[in-house]
Amino acid sequence: MRWLPYGPEAALIECDSLSQMSAVRAAVAGLPDLLEVVPGARSVLVVARPRTDALGDVRRVLESADLANPPGTEPREIVLEVSYDGEDLALVAETAGITTAEVVQLHTGAEYTVAFTGFAPGFAYLTGLPDVLQQSRLDSPRTRVPAGSVGIAGEFTGVYPRSSPGGWRLLGHTETVLFDPRAERPALLAPGDRVRFRSRG
């Protein structure tokens, strides 16, 4: 783990793994005078309120924290209804050496955690994808992926909150709105949330 100054009131904490990043995020969440905690795949950006010792508090917490057993919080649990009719469902099944029904069974049978968000407002990178479904991105990304598309790429699964280019393998789609800028909480999913997918049949 490395600590990099990021201006006078912020620091970027570089982590050795995705799990260490999640533990760091959990350890510093809720500290007073932290304005922002922004997780990435292998980093956590912490932004302090000016003229406070919030960055010092972060250092002290991380020096004493057991990052192998981060503090527990009660996560929100969200279920997304999915129609498994994606353009790449057959390709995913063929690559994995299983049937499309087994792809759906595996994808809906796992519990996922929002590790971090990015790429587009409301896009959440979900960990917990079964090993057999972990596949590379498409060789040629699509110029347009419809909003609500459920895809996989590498160790992650996720849902495109709006129409955009993208190279993830598409399993299906959901009608759930993932991002609404007019809502009190614009993004449906936030780091730490637990997510399950349920097939609409």
Rank of each mutant, 00 (worst) to 15 (best):
M1I: 12
R2C: 10
L4I: 15
L4R: 14
P5F: 07
P5K: 04
Y6M: 14
E9K: 04
E9Q: 15
A10D: 13
A10W: 04
A11C: 13
A11L: 08
C15T: 15
C15A: 11
D16P: 00
D16G: 13
L18Y: 07
L18S: 09
L18M: 14
Q20M: 10
Q20W: 03
M21S: 12
A23C: 08
V24E: 03
R25N: 09
A27W: 03
V28T: 04
A29L: 09
L31N: 08
D33M: 09
L35Q: 15
L35A: 12
L35Y: 14
L35T: 11
V37E: 12
V37C: 10
V37T: 09
V38A: 14
G40V: 08
R42M: 14
S43F: 09
V46W: 03
A48F: 03
R49C: 12
P50N: 15
L55Q: 05
L55A: 06
G56Y: 04
D57R: 15
D57H: 15
V58S: 01
V58T: 01
R59A: 09
A65D: 12
A65V: 08
L67C: 10
L67V: 13
L67A: 11
L67F: 13
A68P: 05
A68S: 15
A68V: 07
P70M: 10
T73M: 11
E74W: 13
E74L: 15
E77L: 06
I78C: 04
V79D: 14
V79A: 13
L80C: 07
V82A: 02
V82E: 00
Y84T: 03
E87H: 11
D88I: 08
D88T: 12
D88V: 09
D88N: 10
L89H: 06
L89M: 10
L89R: 08
L89I: 13
L89K: 09
A90S: 14
L91V: 11
V92I: 13
E94L: 14
I98Q: 06
T100Q: 12
T100A: 08
A101H: 11
V103Y: 01
Q105P: 02
L106T: 06
A110D: 12
Y112Q: 08
T113G: 04
F116P: 00
F116S: 04
T117H: 03
T117F: 01
T117R: 01
F119N: 07
G122H: 03
Y125S: 02
L126N: 04
L126R: 04
P130R: 11
L133D: 01
L133V: 02
Q134Y: 07
Q134P: 00
Q135A: 10
R137T: 00
V145F: 00
P146R: 11
P146T: 05
A147I: 02
V150A: 01
I152C: 03
A153N: 11
G154H: 14
E155N: 09
E155G: 07
T157C: 05
T157N: 05
G158L: 02
R162V: 00
P165T: 08
G167W: 07
L170K: 02
H173N: 07
H173S: 06
P181F: 05
A183E: 15
R185P: 06
P186M: 08
L188K: 01
A190R: 06
G192D: 09
G192Q: 06
R194W: 07
V195C: 05
V195I: 11
F197Q: 00
R200A: 09
R200K: 13
G201A: 11
